[in-house]
Amino acid sequence: MLKSMTGYGRTKGTITGYQADVEVRTLNSKFLDIQLKLPKNLMSKELEIRSMISESLKRGKVSLAIDLTQDASVESDQVNHELFKRYYKEYTQLALEVGSKTDDLFRLALYSPDVMSSSSLDESVIETQWKELIPVLNDALAACNDFRQQEGASLAKELNTYIENIRTCLEQIVGHDPDRVEVIRERIRKHQQEIESSEEFDKNRFEQEMIYYIEKLDISEEIVRLTNHLDYFGEVMAEDDSQGKKLGFISQEIGREINTIGSKANYAPVQKLVVSMKDELEKIKEQLLNII
């Protein structure tokens, strides 16, 4: 089952004193790249959060944001009241001394250093909040994974279409091969007649070179190998775990066989089919960039 690296998940829940909102976004990346946006009182849990993401999402560029909104019914412990009063009193006195307006002093005092702080939270409270947040976080990661699976199913359909298009072209190449061989033989016969008229003609050497030449133009082995690679690609796509990198390696092998057929074909109808197969393969490679 394929998984896309593009995903989204969002869940909300209640923890001690807060409403929690967890949002996960993922994009394609060669490796696991995690970006976190955490409230101050959860900074100590960064390594644990990264570990949870790594275990669940495996690969991709991951952006995770946790937003905590204090319940209106809970008395705020994030405002240092005494410090706020001291700031406000001092700012008011300074404003009077210089004859300045006092309209914005409330906001200025509120956002002065250490007035808005969660440092007063007890460690035990943070641990309780963390334990309550873990299920919410897991639900967001699971929702993101579900999104990835749905996207992966769509990608799987497209990849199957491209693989079948390559297989159809290959079947047509097999159908053209007898004509291709006959054209090459006729070409060789004409050259043979020209060469045999030469006084320096060496029949034994000519036969050896023709055998070598015909073997170099034989594409039967490439056809067999390419068929096997196409079958194997489908088998890997059907595996339980998403195997984006493995599919990438198989697509490289498919490309090698297609290129070899193209270089050996020496026949216009086959060359056209080779171009079509290369076009389908490029589509496959483009889609594989977004597979885990």
Rank of each mutant, 00 (worst) to 15 (best):
S4D: 02
M5E: 03
G7M: 05
G9R: 07
G9L: 06
R10V: 09
T11Y: 07
G17P: 06
D21R: 04
V22N: 09
E23R: 13
E23S: 13
R25N: 11
T26I: 01
L27R: 01
K30D: 12
L32D: 12
D33N: 14
Q35I: 10
K40P: 00
L42W: 08
E46F: 12
E48F: 09
G60L: 05
K61M: 02
S63L: 09
L64P: 11
D71P: 01
D71F: 09
D77L: 03
D77C: 00
V79Y: 09
L96W: 04
K101N: 13
D103R: 10
V115S: 04
S117L: 05
D122E: 15
D122K: 14
S124W: 09
I126V: 14
L141P: 02
A142S: 14
E164W: 00
I166K: 03
I173W: 12
D179E: 15
R180N: 12
E182T: 13
E182H: 11
V183S: 14
R185W: 02
R187K: 15
Q193D: 08
I211Q: 08
Y212P: 00
I214F: 12
E215V: 01
D218R: 03
L226A: 06
T227F: 00
F233W: 03
F233K: 00
G244D: 13
I250R: 05
I254P: 01
G262K: 09
P269D: 01
P269G: 06
V270N: 10
Q271L: 03
D279C: 11
L281D: 07
I284W: 07
K285R: 15
I292V: 15
